[in-house]
Design a protein around this nucleic acid. Structure first.
Lengths: 358, 358
DNA sequence: TGTAATTTTGTGTACGTACACAATTTTAAT
DNA sequence: ATTAAAATTGTGTACGTACACAAAATTACA
């Protein structure tokens, strides 16, 4: 644990003043070639790293971050992402950060357009966090942000044709393969049930999950195509009827997955029918899914650590503001968890673990 | 995001000097009742929280931490814990921390005694991190540390009859239940294989895991007791022979668990035999187990996030030194992960996620 | 060569906390 | 009431970085 060299020491080594070192560090220009090289040599020599604490102390600017994502419903996926935002903001309570939320209805492109417009009209922003849904709208937003040279990061998924500063997301193909592993199904008995979309395109995550599942089945010698069906996600009675009809028409189905957070709707419908010979693998640690896991009507949940997505997005931006690091696009792959009834009690959906009194 | 009040502002509110506020904050004494109450009222009123960054900057003491645990073998469990120590130390590179390792042979009480003795003789320590094995020796060490008023924390498991400042561990009973869930076995075909111990008592973690598994089986109506057998963990040829004999004598066994990190030994033995009709559920993301998961000879691994154990232990101590928080024993329950072949690629054994260039 | 403009470099202060030390007030003892 | 001792309170400086501003050096131009 050798003590870190300070700017002062670097200055002494290079035979310049601390101010000059600072100019090199922050590319502030107005510096002679000779000294710049001397300073860079000294920095290199001792492997200089700024002291995060004093950097943070000296960082007196206020930071304004806009956040746009689908609306966060209580107990839902995006609420967890928001929880992550707040956890990070709490950790950075010493720094003056203001977040402005511009949420949209993930089934209504118009509401998304409005949200993005509001962001583009805000002249006071330092960065944007995007939980994307509509590809074209998001591409448009991003190219405008590029013009304004405003950094933006994606959470949950990324959109092609954009230049984000960072992406925080899980590998959805792996999620799909895990579905296959967890269903542990025999040939011919598998169904993929999904929520009916009103007009809008199918979510990219869900497409990649399906591909992962199909690849798994192929690799493991399961030939029969999974059966597919849809159910309503707005009218629960209708959904229940649709699900009932599907299973009465397809009694050979014993393994089911729903590739978004709506697995609980199928679980509840089957529970009402008293049908217990179907294994359901669902997605996301939402309150409804949690309940079904507890009840035993959902076999397992594939979870994406949404809290971490939010936490790391804020963390990344703040660190980059403090350190004044330039753009260097990175994708952070967040691990995927498998949660069973048995591990419900110890699964903590927090970027920092909870403490328990003993 | 209301700006945090500073000590100066608190002082103004209470009509005292900043030094007086500091004395209240750190219980330095020598303060009149009247002012103490005034300051406490002001602190309460604004919900004062120290600025972690300036606290860290002002913290100029050197900290010395002793770490005692079983030896860390390459690719093994404790190596990951050590990785966590180093990750935290890197994060706190600004602070002058020195760690002294006193590792012992987890099968040799004498070596443990020596390690503990060395810790007790070190007059320069500020805290101790203990990865415990031998109950009686650890109890003895802890009571000596209590006498010296040295803080100590446990990682991996805790020892009863001690007064640690913190514990970082996973719920082993849950781990055992997960084994049951993952084996997904039928009555009568289950075996618990374990490594033969030379003299020493059985590890507490392993006992609790077994209890969790038995509880799961009972709850799920599996009546037959699992078969048990032991194999050598030092002589791999002997182990292989023992495992071969067990399975030839018990052909009905199709579901096997090894309740410590040695699952790969069984997996390799069965692979050599060409026996593929046995599902193995193992423990810990060690390099050997990882390989077997990849090969498909181990079905799934229950993993304890050892990196997090190390990371949080250091983190806890440093934060407590900086904040000068008093003893307030807490147990932090680290979640348990289930890793399959499919999720191998995205499982990151790090407290801070890795970045990937896109 | 002298002067102004420009570039380069150095200096000083702020951030909020911790703590040593100085200054002041209170208490005790005569 | 006086003085010493003790208790209380206030002041000042350090930590390492960031950045505004002052100072110095260099260049441009007459």
């Amino acid at each position: 644990m050798a003590k870190q060299a300070s700017i002062k020491e670097i200055a002494k080594m290079a035979g310049v003043s601390p101010g000059t070192v600072d100019r090199v560090l922050h590319n502030r220009g107005n510096i002679s070639e000779k000294r710049r090289i001397a300073v860079e040599k000294a920095l290199e020599e001792v492997g200089y790293k700024p002291n995060i604490h004093t950097s943070a102390v000296s960082f007196r600017k206020a930071v304004s971050i806009a956040i746009t994502s689908p609306f966060a419903y209580p107990g839902g996926y995006w609420e967890s992402v928001f929880k992550g935002f707040n956890e990070a903001l709490q950790e950075f309570a010493d720094i003056n950060i203001s977040c402005i939320y511009h949420c949209y209805d993930q089934f209504d492109p118009e509401s998304c357009r409005d949200a993005f417009q509001a962001i583009l009209e805000d002249e006071n922003l330092d960065a944007v966090i995007i939980g994307p849904t509509f590809e074209d709208l998001t591409q448009d937003l991003c190219s405008r942000l590029d013009e304004k040279e405003l950094p933006y990061v994606f959470v949950d998924s990324s959109i092609k044709g954009t230049e984000p500063w960072a992406v925080f997301a899980s590998d959805q193909h792996v999620c799909g393969e895990l579905v296959g592993r967890l269903l542990d199904a025999q040939d011919g008995g598998i169904a993929i049930l999904s929520t009916r979309r009103r007009g809008s395109k199918r979510a990219n995550n869900s497409i990649m999950r399906e591909q992962g599942l199909l690849d798994f089945l192929k690799r493991n010698g399961i030939q029969t195509e999974p059966k597919r069906s849809q159910f309503s996600m707005t009218d629960l009675d209708l959904a229940s009827a649709e699900i009932k009809e599907f299973f009465s028409k397809n009694p050979e189905i014993h393994w089911v997955t729903v590739l978004n957070s709506s697995g609980y709707i199928v679980a509840d419908a089957l529970k009402a029918l008293g049908k217990q010979d179907v294994r359901i693998v669902g997605f996301d640690f939402t309150s409804n899914n949690r309940r079904c896991l507890e009840e035993g009507t959902i076999h397992s949940l594939i979870c994406q650590r949404p809290v971490d997505l939010g936490y790391y997005a804020i963390h990344y931006l703040v660190e980059h503001f403090i350190y004044k690091v330039g753009k260097n696009t990175k994708t952070t792959l967040i691990p995927v968890d498998v949660v069973f009834k048995e591990s419900l009690s110890c699964y903590r959906e927090s970027s920092r673990y909870k403490e328990v009194s003993i």
